[in-house]
């Protein structure tokens, strides 16, 4: 469950990164059009919400919330490191 929650949060953070011009250029090589940006933000919010729900439903409210914050933090780190690796390749 720890891994599943993290993967969902990772998806959410990936969507948020993809919605940003600077990061989208690195990841996809193209800037996102307005419609896609909005979709990515909605998708990211939904996935992070799902991750929070997973944490709370499995570990209870308090521990679940802490676990969700930890997932979100490390998911963001993973996206940042991936993007920096992509940047160093270019």
């Amino acid at each position: 469950m720890m891994m599943a929650g993290f993967v969902v949060a990772l998806g959410g953070m990936f969507c948020f990164a993809a919605s940003q011009k600077k990061q989208a250029l690195l990841i996809f090589g193209t800037s996102p059009v307005h419609g896609w940006r909005r979709l990515a933000i909605i998708g990211g919010t939904v996935l992070l919400g799902l991750s929070a729900w997973l944490g709370v439903s499995v570990y209870g409210f308090g521990v679940g919330l802490v676990t969700f914050f930890a997932w979100a933090c490390f998911a963001a780190w993973t996206v940042a490191l991936t993007a920096s690796w992509q940047r160093s390749k270019k």
Binding site: Q20, Q23, V79, A83, S84, R87, S88
Partner: peptide, 24 residues
């Protein structure tokens, strides 16, 4: 939020400082 530029001298240290504090 997701910006970490490696091998860019002072800029890399600033990114490292920002990202280690903002993401956590």
């Amino acid at each position: 939020f997701f910006t970490l530029r490696l091998r860019k001298g002072q800029r890399s240290w600033l990114d490292g400082h920002n990202i280690s504090s903002v993401l956590a």
